[in-house]
Design a protein around this nucleic acid. Structure first.
Lengths: 143, 143
DNA sequence: ACAATTACCTATTGACATAGTAGGTAAAAG
DNA sequence: CTTTTACCTACTATGTCAATAGGTAATTGT
């Protein structure tokens, strides 16, 4: 499962992109609009600044801003930064992972294929794609 | 990430399928071959019996046996039974999940598509596919 | 100078899941 | 009636998740 770190990060990115008017956007506003604890978001947004997703500015008129245009962010890099890895198993998440059963493992080929599918799915999808998305797909699914 | 419950269950299924000679296979043997704690496996195979993946028989000559042929198990049902859900987010895992932001959510369409992709990937893959698999795919990936 | 606003920092917490371990009881076969 | 096996309840250590609490530092408007 994708944790709140990844999901909230995505919502923060979308919120900032939507309300971008050139100025820094205070976290207070984002937290209020998204209805997420500001204190918790502080932790998340800090990692997003460190990871190069956002610029932060202190003081009056401060807040957060995207470092690039929305089409220059892949969903994959956002999720991977926040979740640590997108890989389904440890032996693929860490290149140096040692497994004694590697050459007899009957499942590693499947995990590898799965890993690649996930990677492609999220890295081919840009923040700008979500920005213009409606909820159609999600809702119609259950009708 | 797929937990040991799901991964070990898959290995148990494969082990039993490989060593199927019509008799029940004792967990002791499976644990030894797979190099997994027998005590821990007990918990896992118990759920597999309850879930209809395996038959268990007590006493001498007892052990575990598949309830069907390997081509009649999808990987999806095995993983879903052991992991609880394969869905990436709570709002898709539980049909009755209520989310106040559902009709304004810009990400639910993506999660839905992702969910469907995962589901298709694992439900179209049968235990028999893994049984005949080599490690080629996994290893070549890193050469 | 100073008050307000904002990001940024360290520490702590409760709840839960993961990955087991320990020690027993019930069932079946030889 | 002993051996072998599944099955059962309980416990535990470790870690992650999802926050909360209470500060300090930086920047701007007045």
């Amino acid at each position: 499962m994708i944790s709140t770190r990844g999901r909230y990060a995505l919502r923060v990115m979308l919120d900032i992109a939507e309300h971008d008017d050139g100025n820094f956007i205070p976290l207070k506003d984002i937290a209020a609009r998204q209805d997420i604890s500001k204190k918790y978001l502080e932790i998340i947004v800090k990692d997003m600044v460190t990871g190069g997703l956002l610029n932060g500015a202190s003081g009056k008129g401060g807040g957060y801003k995207l470092t690039r245009t929305p089409d220059e962010y892949s969903i994959g890099e956002i999720l991977e930064l926040m979740e640590g890895t997108l890989s389904p198993v440890a032996c693929l998440a860490d290149k140096d992972y040692y497994c004694a059963r590697r050459d007899i493992c009957k499942t590693v080929a499947m995990w590898t294929e799965y890993d690649k599918m996930i990677h492609d799915f999220f890295y081919n999808r840009k923040l700008s794609d979500l920005l213009n998305a409606s909820t159609e797909g999600g809702l119609n699914w259950y009708i």
